[in-house]
Design a protein around this nucleic acid. Structure first.
Length: 284
DNA sequence: CACGGATCCTGATGGC
DNA sequence: TGCCATCAGGATCCGT
């Protein structure tokens, strides 16, 4: 079987979800046969690797940008950080696929090899006995609602926005109101909503909050769909790498004309992260 | 508790 | 070509 490689060189929620879709079915019900640990990641695994040999993978869920791999005992949390990507190879079951320079975690199973490549090593692979454990709660406990779930409703969203006085762009990125909106999609969603990224969160009207809510849902949904279709192309094509980023309206387009009004896209820095916006289309 | 800044690490890029 | 500074998709931690 061909190697399926997802270029998650931009792991925001859509990329993490598409990564999950790429291997969840194929690894389900597999038994862990070995583990190889490379250079240290953000946190230690939290258990002696050999202890996990023989455990069964029940499935893979997503929470925010975390992947939760349920085992018949305990679970493994995966995070791609800023530069991580996962590949699942059924060939890796038999052949010795030598780890490359930035392959820092291998999970060998009876159905294939799941490998984490992460040059910057901000990613993590963490074992925990239960989702209620101290470590799991430290990582997952403060996450906001899922943007693509029913719980992302206007009443709560607007109420939460009113509690914060900092710039809306930073509030979105913080992930404690709604998860999964990274630096790219924060700029894109604010453009679609017509909201200046510098607007203070607590000064956003209910009507504008609804525009923002629906823009977030729209941009993330479209990215997942686009990623899914790219995924199907991948599984037919051998060794092709690629990118499934939606065409950006503002992200990384400083100095270029706005797609709506032809005004020039601006770049500013907020919380040490780049923000892009159209000063004409996005109102203060 | 909310906020802003520093921080982990490696690689790509651009100026000189 | 080399050297150096800057920047990059995340999110935690810490001081205020």
């Amino acid at each position: 079987m061909a190697l399926l490689f997802i270029d998650a060189d931009m792991p925001e929620l859509p990329e993490v979800e598409v990564t999950r879709l790429s291997f969840a079915d194929r690894i389900a019900s597999a038994t862990i046969s070995d583990i190889r640990v490379g250079k240290p990641l953000r946190w230690p695994l939290g258990i002696a690797p050999k202890t996990l040999i023989g455990r069964q993978v029940l499935g893979v869920r997503r929470r925010g940008k975390y992947l939760l791999m349920d085992l018949n005992k305990g679970l493994i949390l995966w995070h791609l950080g800023m530069s991580g990507s996962l590949s699942f190879s059924a060939d890796g079951l038999i052949t010795n696929e030598l780890p490359q320079a930035h392959d820092h975690f291998d999970l060998f199973t009876t159905q294939g090899l799941l490998r984490l490549n992460d040059p910057r090593r901000f990613g993590a692979v963490v074992y925990t006995d239960s989702e209620a454990s101290v470590m799991a709660q430290k990582l997952l406990g403060r996450l906001g609602v899922e943007p693509l779930g029913d719980e992302f409703d206007l009443n709560n969203f607007h109420k939460n926005l009113k509690q914060r006085s900092t710039a809306i762009k930073n509030v979105l990125l913080a992930g404690d109101i709604v998860v999964g909106v990274g630096n790219i999609y924060a700029s894109e969603a604010l453009f679609l909503a017509g909201i200046r990224p510098t607007v203070r969160s607590n000064r956003i009207s209910r009507a504008r909050a609804e525009k923002l809510r629906s823009a977030i849902v729209s941009v993330l949904t479209r990215a997942v769909i686009k990623g899914g279709s790219t995924l199907r192309d991948f599984s037919n094509a051998d060794g092709q790498t690629g990118y499934f980023q939606l065409e950006a309206n503002v992200y990384d387009r400083a100095g270029q004309p706005c797609n709506k009004c032809s005004g020039l896209i601006k770049r500013i820095v907020q919380g040490q992260r780049a923000t892009y916006f159209c000063a004409r289309c996005q109102k203060p």
